[in-house]
């Protein structure tokens, strides 16, 4: 059973914090195929966790459920204390925009909006657009001078940093990053990982989905999936 898999003990400071993610016997079936099979784990506030596994192991399905873009067929998923499996779609939208920041492998910036406007878009769907705050966010990731550039005028690394700034702008409880360095060169990969480590140091909770064992090794611990089951 997955719940027999030992989980590294959180540090004293982490243990005193609350659970951001609490997954219990999570199952997702597509017909007769079980993409996720009784997966259980917790992620505490301030942890940096990697989810790893080969293709078809259920990483994507798990990430979709964690980001409330999909619903499980069984088990429980509590996000920041809220049981999400029973939420209506409209409620999931609200939880997603208030508690989750998404970082994508493909960056997924709106091509006709500038860097700062892409960040303001997340603000807009959350509450209200604030250009000043969005510019400050760009400044923190070293892209203040690129604020009014379109995504096509930015390098891959710069686009990913804008994507991270966008994920952070609403101060989410959880940052979910899906292969965030998959399309970046080594230099930019290092820069992005440095950014994640800095975010963790400032108390952020981060879940990273990756194929890269080197990146996994730089997180607090790794959740390994195979054929939909947690194996470590």
């Amino acid at each position: 059973m997955s719940d027999t898999i030992p989980r590294p003990l959180p540090s004293a400071s982490v243990a005193s914090r609350e659970k951001v993610i609490s997954i219990d016997n999570l199952t997702k079936a597509f017909g007769s195929v079980r993409a996720l099979d009784n997966v259980t784990f917790d992620v505490f506030a301030g942890e940096f966790v990697a989810i790893m596994g080969p293709s078809g192991s259920g990483k994507t399905t798990l990430l979709n459920i964690l980001s409330l873009l999909d619903v499980p067929t069984g088990g429980s998923y509590r996000l920041d204390g809220i049981e999400t499996a029973r939420l209506a779609e409209a409620e999931q939208v609200v939880i997603r925009r208030e508690k989750i920041g998404l970082v994508f492998q493909q960056f997924h910036l709106i091509p006709y909006l500038t860097a700062v406007e892409n960040i303001m878009l997340a603000q807009y769907y959350h509450s209200m657009a604030d250009r000043g705050e969005a510019l400050e966010a760009l400044d923190r990731i070293g892209l203040a001078d690129r604020a009014d550039h379109l995504p096509s005028q930015l390098s891959g690394g710069e686009q990913q940093r804008v994507c991270i700034a966008r994920a952070l702008i609403n101060d989410p409880a959880l940052i979910l990053a899906d292969e965030p360095t998959g399309n970046l060169d080594e230099g930019n990969e290092e820069r992005v990982m440095g950014l994640f480590k800095a975010l963790q140091a400032s108390g952020r909770t981060i879940v990273l989905v990756t194929h890269n064992p080197d990146l996994g090794a730089r997180t607090d611990y790794v959740i390994r999936l195979q054929h939909g089951r947690r194996i470590a």
Partner: peptide
């Protein structure tokens, strides 16, 4: 913990900005 709800109160702007 860091949660999103406090963000609204510190953002400048309002309905006009939206």
């Amino acid at each position: 913990m860091a949660a999103g709800n406090d963000v609204v109160s510190v953002r400048r702007g309002g309905r006009t900005e939206r």
